[in-house]
């Protein structure tokens, strides 16, 4: 397709005219109405928008957790739109990390096993010290044998991030990762994410509705009514908040 050639092929994730429509015959909801977007490598991109703008849907479709109704998506150079469920899962397992707002971890497994899970599912047997190293890199060292129910919210998110990182993914997707945390813990998690981008060049795409959170990102993409509605580089909370107000008040 012509538009693909015009897109930056070094992008970690590239979306081309992606649409997503939900619902049954009686009630359809258009979550994404034709989104074309690139997420650059080694960059921290935030996706911002009022509620109902489709930002979570965008993330899920881009990460291969859901399928678009139409359009093309390239993940780390590989088109994912025609893949079978099994192939898609394997691709996701190797090259994507995903962190939800909450309920990331399997309640019946220890933190250690939760982190090692993607590797085990791929048939590899990670050494315990490697897993512990990943946990240490997110600042979570001493309670590896505990189950999620015994950990605080911030600790659970750290473990979730460690699991998302353990396969050394090309892209780390995060859907409002600090939404359920208090401001101090949230700041710690965001600082950790920032360090990953700066230190090892991890690509991160994060969805949020909080202007303060976007200040940790390199670029903010605004979404409204299922479409891209602008972007901002090196955002500050005030600039982002102004743009948001503008978007929300627009008819």
């Amino acid at each position: 397709m012509n538009t693909t050639l015009m897109r930056d092929t070094t992008a970690a994730v590239a979306l081309c005219d992606v649409r997503k429509v939900y619902g049954t015959r009686s009630a359809t909801v258009t979550a994404l109405a034709g989104v074309s977007l690139d997420f650059g490598r080694g960059r921290f991109t935030a996706v911002m928008g009022p509620s109902g703008s489709g930002k979570s849907t965008l993330l899920q479709v881009a990460a291969g957790l859901d399928r678009p109704t139409s359009g093309e998506i390239h993940l780390d150079g590989t088109p994912i739109t025609g893949l079978s469920e099994t192939k898609l899962t394997k691709l996701r397992r190797d090259r994507i990390g995903f962190v939800f707002q909450s309920f990331n971890l399997l309640p019946s497994l220890t933190a250690e096993l939760n982190v090692a899970l993607p590797l085990r599912l791929a048939g590899r047997r990670p050494k315990r010290k490697d897993v512990r190293a990943v946990l240490a890199s997110v600042g979570f060292a001493d309670r590896a044998r505990h189950r999620p129910a015994e950990l605080s919210g911030g600790q659970q998110q750290r473990v979730a991030i460690a699991r998302a990182l353990v396969t050394r993914p090309a892209v780390l997707f995060a859907d409002e990762p600090t939404g359920a945390l208090d401001s101090t813990t949230g700041r710690e998690v965001l600082t950790l994410l920032r360090r990953l981008v700066d230190g090892v060049g991890q690509t991160i795409v994060m969805v949020t509705h909080d202007p303060y959170v976007t200040s940790f990102a390199d670029r903010v993409v605004f979404l409204a009514d299922g479409r891209v509605a602008g972007e901002l580089y090196d955002p500050t909370p005030q600039a982002v908040a102004e743009r948001m107000t503008f978007l929300e008040s627009a008819p």
Partner: peptide, 16 residues
């Protein structure tokens, strides 16, 4: 269902 959804999100194929 939800537990299996989490497992799938973590990378389990349907067969697994």
């Amino acid at each position: 269902r939800r537990e299996f959804g989490l497992l799938r999100a973590a990378g389990a194929t349907p067969r697994q």
